[in-house]
Design a protein around this nucleic acid. Structure first.
Lengths: 160, 160
DNA sequence: GCCCTATGCTTTGCCAGTCAAAGCAATGGA
DNA sequence: TCCATTGCTTTGACTGGCAAAGCATAGGGC
């Protein structure tokens, strides 16, 4: 087994792990991964327009509409017409939404953070540089990825 | 920005890159990523049972049934009752299926392989060990991942 | 040889995410 | 005043995914 195989297998495992965690979360909690991602983007500045979310998530506006529909149904966000430009809709968090973002459990990310924190300094450095290297290898276009995995937010990861 | 953030961002970029590539392939080729993954598993031994595919892909048998339905509709595979155990179904490739697997373009994986090959020996080694480390951090259970990314197969990657 | 349980797959019915295309509403020139 | 543009939603469709129920076969145990 050569290194190319090994690296591809490892990548595949990473991909699969996030996929499986996503599914599990969908089943156990109310908010799904995609919905939560949208929620986080809104939470960053406490509100956002549909277009903004669509651009950040790299999905169509139609998709955002349906995601936001669900968030509204859950009482996590509210729609409100912008006063400046009444075509725009400001989507902003409710108290419940804010709480959800803050408290959302994220087993995958927590797991990562916990184990990462336990690593030696040099190991951490190596890992970061390797991951960034791989990311650069894979993504063609610019990406404004925020520090967010599919299903969680580092900023609020509880067990540090 | 600390290392945890950096590593999570990099991970997110990797995830997103594969996600976007998957979408692009879905749009340009007939087969979707999930369907192609199933096809590859079948191709490995030229045939497979539904259960086998379900286990390898970590999805339910019901899901496999629907994926195979689509592959059958596309004329890529055929279902055939096993002679040994008539409860089992052998799913095997057609000529078209074999051609599809062999020729399927895989920009993401090709890209990775090309860049990986261009790296220094020590860099390759570091990358492999880092990726495996991360994979181990993320996946709880054992995983028998084959050397296959979401959308392609290293065995047939053309540009070496 | 007959039951009964286990096994392998499909069917049914559901939900989420995603898009394209069409539609509606407001903006902002010309 | 009109019209093109912009921002969002609606509609309708497709894929992936699951659980539960159903169907057919296999294989013991008696």
């Amino acid at each position: 087994m050569d290194r190319i195989d090994s690296s591809l297998i490892a990548l595949r495992r990473i991909l699969r792990a996030t996929e499986l965690y996503g599914r599990r979360i969908k089943q156990t909690t109310g908010v799904t991964a995609a919905q939560f991602r949208a929620l986080q983007i809104i939470a960053e500045k406490d509100d956002a327009t549909a277009k903004e979310i669509a651009l950040r998530m790299r999905v169509s506006q139609a998709t955002v509409t349906s995601l936001v529909d669900k968030l509204v149904a859950e009482g996590l966000v509210l729609r409100e017409k912008s006063e400046q430009d009444r075509r725009q809709i400001n989507i902003h968090l409710t108290g419940k939404g804010r709480r959800t973002v803050a408290e959302a459990p994220d087993p995958l990310q927590q797991r990562f953070v916990r184990k990462f924190s336990a690593m030696e300094d040099w190991e951490q450095a190596m890992l970061v540089s390797s991951l960034e290297r791989v990311a650069a290898m894979l993504d063609a276009e610019d990406m404004d990825a925020s520090p967010v995995l599919d299903t969680g937010d580092i900023k609020h990861a509880p067990d540090q």
